[in-house]
């Protein structure tokens, strides 16, 4: 990015470097949300329906994992993906894929834990009817996920918010490489360290605006969907 300009000027001028950063942030965080949802939603639904010894403990642990420190996840993924680590042959350290992996691990517990709560509430409502229709566990999970989809958007949003806002994990596994793995948050960290506080704050405001826009879109979808599906 050019020096000595405010973030607002960059936005207005359509600065390609800035847009590349915003685009990468969205790709990484949305991919992480998608992957975390593929794992977290079925797992949360399964936990909501299952009854086994130690289930309460599993729920407590899952809820606690929502607070996983990004730096710890980053370090863990770093050690896994390092050329000297067990998955070093993948060669994806310091790439966007590594960032997606780290953020997926970071937010899968958030999505799973919130989905578990949502699905469990819905299950209490639906259980009798589904049993009366002889719907098995797998079929019930699919039905609950589908019928709870608009409420589950909230869980996905929480995951997205966390992913888009975190810096600790992506900076470690992505390396904050200019034009390649630099996201909104790592750019903010960098500008802060360079003492360019106005640019850092400007980037922060852009990040907030994006998160608000994504939330608004999701909220609109939810409202529309609830009206259509009851």
């Amino acid at each position: 990015m050019p020096e000595n300009v405010s973030a607002l000027q960059l936005v207005l001028a359509g600065d390609p470097a800035l847009y590349a950063i915003v685009r990468l942030s969205l790709i990484v965080s949305l991919s992480a949300v998608l992957l975390a949802a593929l794992v977290g939603l079925p797992f949360g639904a399964w936990l909501a329906l299952s009854r086994f010894r130690g289930r309460e403990g599993a729920i407590v642990i899952l809820n606690a994992l929502m607070g996983l420190p990004p730096v710890v996840v980053g370090l863990l993924v770093f050690l896994l993906l390092s050329r000297s680590g067990p998955l070093g042959s993948w060669g994806i350290l310091f790439t966007p894929q590594a960032m997606i992996v780290a953020q997926t691990i970071l937010i899968a517990p958030i999505i799973a834990a919130l989905a578990r709560q949502t699905i469990e509430d819905l299950w209490l409502e639906y259980r009798d009817e589904l049993q009366a229709m002889n719907v098995g566990t797998l079929g019930s999970v699919v039905t609950l996920l589908w019928d709870g989809r608009f409420s589950l958007l909230t869980a996905l949003l929480a995951g997205f918010g966390r992913a888009a806002a975190e810096v600790g994990a992506v900076i470690i596994v992505g390396g904050n490489i200019d034009g390649f793995t630099r996201t909104m948050t790592t750019a903010i960290a960098l500008e802060t360290s360079k003492g360019d506080l106005p640019l850092a704050i400007g980037l922060g405001m852009i990040l907030i605006v994006i998160v608000v826009l994504v939330n608004a879109a999701a909220w609109g979808t939810r409202r529309f969907g609830e009206r259509m599906a009851g």
Partner: peptide, 17 residues
């Protein structure tokens, strides 16, 4: 569809490298 989208996203980011 969602899974296919996820896969293509990963593949497209892989294209960077």
């Amino acid at each position: 569809i969602v899974m296919a989208a996820a896969a293509s996203l990963l593949a497209s980011s892989a294209a960077f490298s």
